[in-house]
């Protein structure tokens, strides 16, 4: 339970960061991605702030024998650049550019622009589910062809 409360506190920090940096405002996000138009560098400063903290602090923490409240670190193990990473990242960018919301700001936007937030989150969950079905179908086919 203590661990969950800390996670909630971390989420609270994250949400505060998103709001005060104006990332819940899709105008800011689309303004950043619009490099050939009236470019808005706000998001660059947000990323600079965030990544400079993680770049400095992640390294010493990852040298600990274990995290403070669980037994092990659970990090993605693969370092291979796969085709699904490439296609997936490109697709994510397309969706990000179309909607102006990535998942965090999309959730935070429930407080600010309810209709847009509900629409983007619904789309996101459907996409997430749809990917699950596609993987399931493909696996099914692989199993069938092995027979």
């Amino acid at each position: 339970m203590k661990r969950n409360l800390w996670a909630a506190f971390a989420g609270f920090l994250f949400g505060t960061g998103l709001v005060i940096s104006q990332m819940v405002d899709r105008v800011r996000v689309i303004g950043f991605l619009d490099i050939l138009g009236d470019w808005d560098p706000t998001l660059l400063f947000v990323m600079l702030g965030a990544v400079s903290v993680t770049l400095v602090l992640f390294k010493p923490i990852l040298k600990w024998s274990s995290p403070l409240m669980v037994d092990n670190f659970a990090l993605p193990k693969s370092s291979k650049v796969t085709s699904s990473l490439i296609v997936g990242a490109l697709l994510f960018g397309v969706g990000w550019g179309l909607s102006g919301y990535c998942p965090g700001p999309g959730l935070a936007a429930l407080a600010w622009r309810l209709k847009e937030a509900v629409v983007v989150l619904t789309g996101f969950m459907l996409g997430s589910l749809c990917h699950g079905w596609l993987v399931y179908l493909r696996r099914g086919k692989q199993v069938a062809s092995k027979r």
């Binding site: 296609v87 983007v120 789309g123």
Partner: peptide, 11 residues
């Protein structure tokens, strides 16, 4: 916005 969310969800 909805379509963008959908594509981002798959991505």
């Amino acid at each position: 916005i909805g379509l963008g969310g959908f594509i981002a969800g798959i991505g």
